[in-house]
């Protein structure tokens, strides 16, 4: 029972992070390997706002969320926009370089020590007993809830809203989308903003649950196999991918070896790349022609 709860919580974490990878890849075909760092930046922003707006946790959270949305959009406008039309590798490397830069800056500003935004916000995190003898911390429960709400909102946004439809169009065929008068730069900036926003929510909830350290970057990277297993351009896929990766990770840690924790997602990834490189729900990339 506890195992099941652990799997659900981890799957929620991975799914929430993975949707950031999916959003950016689906819209602009760029793999953002700085997602872990952006996510960590989100939680540090929460730490900063928590000390600015002491006594108003909700205000602090809201301000941090808006800031992280802006950070994502700014990253696109000032950096990734310049990489449009470059090689795939160049764009990916730019995100890696951005990640290194961010990590350095975060340590300079906030130091490398473990921090607890929960204390700064004055949030308590009691464990809740579930039927069946399992326990779950409040923040973990909140995280599962947040994942459900955010995925619901994203589906609705992409399906029904004007900007969501534009986003899908830009992802399907940028040239035609641009000719129909869709502002590609605005769409891409929005995708980066939303991706950073969802990543930051994940980062904030994780840091409220278990503190804030440099290991968060690794969590961000481990969520990437979840996105790929489901298919890099499919949100539904990210949910299933997260569930598969989380189930594999928790059960292997439990039954085989705790040291496996950091490799399991990548083992799943390798297996998936061998069997079905485009993922469970992803679209097959076209063959190239002369």
């Amino acid at each position: 029972m506890q195992l099941g709860v652990n799997i659900i919580v981890l799957a929620a974490i991975y799914a929430l992070i993975a949707c950031g990878y999916v959003l950016i890849y689906r819209v602009s075909r760029v793999l953002n390997l700085a997602h872990g760092e952006l996510m960590m930046l989100g939680s540090y922003l929460l730490l900063a706002t928590a000390s600015t707006f002491t006594g108003h946790p909700l205000v602090a959270i809201a301000v941090a969320l808006v800031l992280s949305l802006c950070v994502g959009a700014l990253v696109y406008l000032f950096l990734m926009r310049k990489m449009a039309g470059e090689m795939v590798l160049a764009a990916v490397l730019t995100t890696i370089a951005l990640g290194i830069l961010l990590r350095g800056v975060m340590v300079i500003v906030w130091s490398a020590q473990q921090q607890y935004p929960g204390q700064a916000l004055g949030v308590v995190n009691p464990a809740i007993a579930l039927p069946g003898g399992a326990r779950i911390s409040t923040m973990a429960a909140l995280l599962v809830l947040a994942t459900a709400v955010i995925y619901g909102a994203l589906f609705a946004f992409l399906r029904f809203s004007r900007w969501g439809v534009r986003m899908r169009a830009a992802g399907q065929n940028p040239l035609l989308a641009a000719q129909r008068g869709i502002n590609l730069h605005a769409i891409y900036a929005l995708a980066w903003g939303l991706s950073t926003l969802t990543g930051s929510i994940a980062g904030m909830l994780i840091s409220l649950d278990s503190g804030l350290t440099g290991t968060m970057v690794l969590i961000g990277l481990k969520a990437f196999p979840a996105a790929l297993v489901g298919g890099l351009d499919s949100l539904v896929g990210a949910l299933f991918g997260a569930l598969i990766v989380a189930a594999a990770e928790i059960s292997l840690i439990h039954y085989v070896d705790p040291l496996l924790s950091d490799v399991v997602p990548f083992l799943v990834l390798i297996v998936m790349l061998i069997i079905r490189p485009w993922g469970l729900f992803g679209t097959r990339e076209e063959l190239d022609r002369v």
Partner: peptide, 16 residues
């Protein structure tokens, strides 16, 4: 950390 940040920055400058 300064090293890290500077390295990332230089890499970005070269790429762009």
């Amino acid at each position: 950390a300064v090293n890290y940040a500077a390295f990332g920055l230089v890499m970005i400058l070269f790429l762009v």
